[in-house]
């Protein structure tokens, strides 16, 4: 099993764009028992990755409940970093 932060980034290899909810849904089976698997953690991880050029924003929308959904996608630099330092086989 990958560390949670690695797994969050790796989701973007298969999902072209995704927001925090979609990432959580995709990782739920493996990580739902982990205490650190919380939406706040995932959102902060995504925003940090975006701040450092690993991810870029692909759009955002508000839902009927007043929640915000920010969608991200992997950048070329991000793909290079994942391939070089955290390949899926770690």
């Amino acid at each position: 099993m990958l560390p949670l932060n690695y797994a969050i980034l790796h989701c973007y290899r298969t999902l072209e764009t995704a927001d925090a909810d979609q990432i959580m849904e995709s990782l739920k089976a493996d990580y739902e028992r982990s205490r650190s698997f919380r939406k706040k953690t995932v959102v902060e991880s995504l925003m940090t990755a975006k701040e450092n050029g690993i991810l870029e924003e692909a759009g955002y929308e508000a839902d009927a409940g007043g929640g915000l959904h920010v969608f991200y996608r992997l950048t070329d630099y991000g793909k290079e970093i994942l391939d070089k330092y955290i390949p899926i086989t770690v």
């Binding site: 764009t17 902060e44 759009g59 929308e61 007043g66 915000l68």
Partner: peptide, 21 residues
């Protein structure tokens, strides 16, 4: 994914970005 242009989403996004910064 389409970007919502409604004012509520823009205001929320600005608030979230500002809070993170």
């Amino acid at each position: 994914m389409t970007e919502s242009l409604n004012a509520n989403a823009v205001a929320l996004k600005r608030k979230v970005d500002s809070r993170f910064f």
